[in-house]
């Protein structure tokens, strides 16, 4: 094998002219280049993939679900003959310790230095944003 053959076999794309000069090298690539008579692949009916139909839940659906829960609660209380607000306040009145914690916490926030107030505010927004994003997270594969 001469140098030209070696260069061609190493990198045929870079030395295409060699194939016209060397019959033995050409025979190798002619043979490797023979294609079978491939028939078209028919995939008329693709099965339903596990990832199909998995989409972000629309905001409308989320809002409708939340409103439905509120409406059902109000209806439930109405049927029971009690006002939801009165039930809530009566329950709260029994939870003195919790009220005290809330009172102390809110007082602490109000009297905290400005930096802390801002930090708490930002953390509140961040945590709630994360919760909302987790609720609406895309199913696996959509973002791939």
């Amino acid at each position: 094998m001469n140098d030209a053959c070696q260069r061609y076999l190493e990198n045929p794309e870079a030395n295409p002219e060699h194939a016209r000069e060397c019959a033995s090298c050409r025979a190798v690539f002619d043979a490797l280049g023979l294609e079978i008579q491939a028939k078209p692949i028919a995939i008329d009916e693709l099965p339903l993939a596990p990832w199909e139909g998995a989409k972000h839940r629309p905001w409308g659906l989320v809002a409708a679900a939340a409103i439905s829960v509120v409406v059902l609660t109000v209806v439930f209380f109405a049927v029971a003959g009690a006002s939801p607000l009165s039930v809530l306040s009566s329950e709260m009145s029994r939870l003195e310790m919790m009220r005290e914690i809330f009172r102390l916490s809110s007082a602490a926030v109000r009297t905290a230095p400005l930096t802390w107030q801002v930090t708490i505010g930002v953390l509140f927004v961040v945590v709630n944003t994360i919760l909302v994003l987790l609720l609406r997270r895309a199913p696996r594969g959509i973002d791939a």
Binding site: C25, A27, V28, A31
Partner: peptide
């Protein structure tokens, strides 16, 4: 491959 395909070499 080149070694075994010698018989298919056609003269230029």
């Amino acid at each position: 491959l080149k070694d075994v395909l010698g018989e298919f070499v056609e003269p230029l």
